[in-house]
């Protein structure tokens, strides 16, 4: 009996050290979970950097991992059309958190039916929203492992301080650009939160999803706007085929600036949120100055 008790006690620290299993369907949320959770979480990022989240569909292997996860993080705001499948897979075992639904949405007319509005799901282009997301993830992790509250709180505070520094840097960089030149022509409509936070007007060639195709009227309207608003540059995206953009440059003579990361983190310098955001801000400011 004594041996059995000793054996059970010996397994307790090991059980406590078992990392919390997190499944994330957003590259930004994957980073947040890793930064806040540190060594106490094992995060599976199902949507990899550079993958278009609008087109992503979970494979059987993803569903299996989700079924075993303790925390499932989703971008939400209708980004994941497969959310039903995930809910079915996880049942009541894991906590499924639709992070983007926890804060307010910016809405815009639907490309297909302008009489109705749709939510912009690209909430991470607002640093303030990423700060909120970090707090949500911190609180969820604390709920799952109250013993690690101090670690998660400290890690979140460090991450939030970095976001604040990033926000200050971005504001100062954007202040180099006259306010009447803050016109952003992008391939798909992914920068409403960025525009709202930094005083830009958006002219998007496609709709919210990168799969939306622009009509010839829409392309004509964009060309007219570029001319009348004296837009200096247009911005393709890392994932997009820039065929239509090329057509617009032929018509207007406007230059094609560097790629923007619209749908999440990318590779290299853009593989972190800070790197991705700095890349986007620098690319925009330098091209429109």
């Amino acid at each position: 009996m004594r041996t059995l008790v000793c054996a059970l006690l010996a397994t307790l620290p090991l059980a406590a050290a078992e990392p919390i299993r997190v499944s994330s369907f957003s590259t930004v949320l994957t980073e947040i979970a890793q930064q806040v959770g540190g060594p106490r979480v094992a995060v599976t990022g199902h949507v990899k950097p550079g993958v278009d989240p609008h087109e992503f569909e979970p494979k059987p292997g993803d569903i299996k991992t989700v079924a075993d996860a303790q925390l499932i993080l989703l971008s939400a705001k209708h980004m994941e059309g497969y959310v039903g499948k995930l809910k079915e897979a996880t049942g009541a075992r894991g906590r499924l958190v639709e992070v983007g639904n926890e804060f307010s949405s910016l809405k815009m007319p639907d490309e297909k039916d302008p009489s109705r509005t749709v939510e912009d799901p690209h909430w991470w282009h607002s640093v303030a929203n990423v700060e909120k997301a970090a707090k949500i993830v911190r609180d969820e992790l604390i709920e799952l492992s109250p013993a690690d509250k101090e670690l998660f709180t400290d890690n979140a505070a460090k991450y939030l301080a970095r976001l604040e520094t990033l926000q200050k840097w971005a504001k100062a960089k954007i202040a180099e650009l006259p306010r009447d030149q803050r016109k952003l022509v992008t391939s798909h409509d992914a920068f409403q939160y960025f525009a709202h936070e930094n005083g830009f007007t958006i002219y998007a060639i496609e709709g919210i999803s990168s799969a939306d195709q622009p009509s010839s009227k829409k392309v004509g309207d964009i060309i007219a706007a570029i001319r009348s608003q004296h837009v200096k540059a247009i911005f393709p995206e890392s994932i997009e085929n820039p065929k239509v953009l090329t057509e617009i440059t032929r018509e207007t003579g406007v230059k094609v600036a560097g790629n923007l990361y619209a749908d999440g983190l990318g590779e290299g310098n853009a593989s972190t949120y800070e790197g991705m955001y700095k890349h986007n801000v620098s690319t925009i400011v330098e091209a429109l100055k």
């Binding site: 006259p178 009447d180 030149q181 001319r227 004296h230 200096k232 032929r250 018509e251 003579g253 230059k255």
Partner: peptide, 17 residues
């Protein structure tokens, strides 16, 4: 008018405030 492939027209000059 549409330019030949590869050609570009003159970029619009931004009117400074």
């Amino acid at each position: 008018k549409t330019a030949a492939p590869g050609a570009t027209t003159e970029a619009p000059a931004a009117a400074a405030a």
